Amino acid sequence: MIRSLLVVSGHELRSRLRDGTALLLALVAPVALASLFGLALGGEDPPLRASIGIVDLDGGEFPTSVRREALATDELRDVLTLRDYDDEDQAGVAVDDGEIGAAIVFPPGFSDSVGAGEGGEVTVLTSDSTPLAGVIANSMVDQISALVEARTLAVRASLDAGVPADEVRLFVEENGAAGPTLTLDADPMAGGKVDGAVHYASGMAVLFAYLVVSTSTRGLLTDRQLGTLSRLRVAPVPRWTPVVGKGIVGFLLAMTSVCATWASSVLFFGLSWGDPLAVLALCGAHVLAATAITMLVAGNARTDAQADGYNLGIAFASGILGGSLVPLHALPDFLQALALFTPNGWTSTGLAGLAAGGDLASVAGPIGVVCLIAVVAGSLAALRFRKGLLG
């Protein structure tokens, strides 16, 4: 049984390598497109910008120092733009209209409240359409919260120690207990720029997985037209051998394509997709799902040309809906919801998380969902083959 499977797989692999189509789709096209995106979006300057509104209803020193420290932060020097607004309603309209990506609102008396050790809260306005600005604004507020907490604790400790109330503020400042300097070292922006080249390189790898696998699965329809499957039925081999053999070759070619695109982006442009083991596991699950889906298409198509058309449509529809071609956050809400029904959507989300510093555990969910899609599609394909091509 294993020998017959190896013979069928070896024959399929030689056929794909001889006609050149597999090599074109597996290596040349995705690597070339990923390289173009690397050249277009790579470089030293961050490809994204973030505009954040500041509503200073306090008028004290604290908002001024926050603004000064944020603009002086190395990670945000060429990324962040701050704009002033008179009140929260005006800033909210600007966020809704896309004029700014987020806004931070300092309430009246904030600096005095913090100086007296009574704490204080600021408000953050964000928009789903501009996630980078939201990340930066929330990171700034997290750091502000740390400053406020440190100052509050210092003031209370000074009062408990017997320092007169009118001397507490000066005492705290002279003893360096005003809290840490505002930095964004713990922010996802720190340690590297947000690189669109990573998104599009991985997107090309994910997209072409469908096209690469389809070069093998469509061969089942060709074999049916040529009578090869009929001859295999009377041979002393299991009926599922040609299906599994072609599926294995398609899977291996698609994984080779993904790895080649990944390696080229790393070697030529210095990009990082994240934890290698997690990337490999997630991409492997995606390729498995792509193989199952193209098998299902082959089982329902009447001709190889029809299968090619279906697979091409599915590949690009999944690529667009699933964030392989267009970032998910740039899509309307209802399309983002539809992305959850595609393996591309889960894979793109997982790869984005890995590029931001996630590990294997952080993508366990996406891997599980993509594998579930593969199992469902593969089971339906097996039933279809049993009733159709192999019946």
Rank of each mutant, 00 (worst) to 15 (best):
V326M: 11
Q336C: 01
T342Y: 06
P327C: 02
G323W: 07
S324I: 11
V326A: 12
F341L: 11
I320Q: 09
P327R: 02
A330T: 15
F316P: 00
P343D: 14
A330F: 14
L340H: 09
L312D: 09
N311F: 03
A330Y: 13
G322D: 06
P343L: 12
F334W: 13
F316K: 02
A317S: 09
H329P: 00
G323N: 08
L331Q: 13
P327Q: 07
L312F: 13
I320R: 03
D333W: 14
P343H: 13
L331K: 10
G309K: 15
G322E: 15
F334D: 05
F334C: 04
A315R: 04
Y310N: 10
Y310W: 04
L340D: 06
L340Q: 10
S318E: 10
L335I: 07
D333R: 11
A337F: 04
Y310T: 11
G323Q: 00
I314Y: 12
L312Y: 04
I320T: 12
S318P: 04
I314H: 08
S318T: 13
V326Y: 01
G319E: 10
G322C: 01
F316I: 10
L328M: 11
L338C: 00
P343E: 09
F334I: 02
A337M: 00
F341Q: 01
L321Y: 14
Y310H: 08
L328W: 10
P343G: 10
N311A: 14
G322Q: 07
L340P: 00
L325E: 15
P332M: 06
I320N: 00
P343F: 07
D333T: 15
T342R: 07
A339H: 03
G322R: 07
L340K: 15
A330P: 01
T342Q: 03
T342N: 11
P332K: 14
G322I: 02
F316Y: 08
G319P: 00
T342K: 08
A317Q: 09
L331D: 09
G322V: 03
G319K: 02
G313Q: 15
I314K: 13
A315K: 05
H329S: 14
Q336N: 13
A337T: 03
H329T: 09
S324H: 00
A339L: 05
G322M: 02
L321N: 09
G323P: 03
G313H: 08
N311G: 15
P343W: 07
A330E: 15
L335R: 06
G313C: 01
L338S: 03
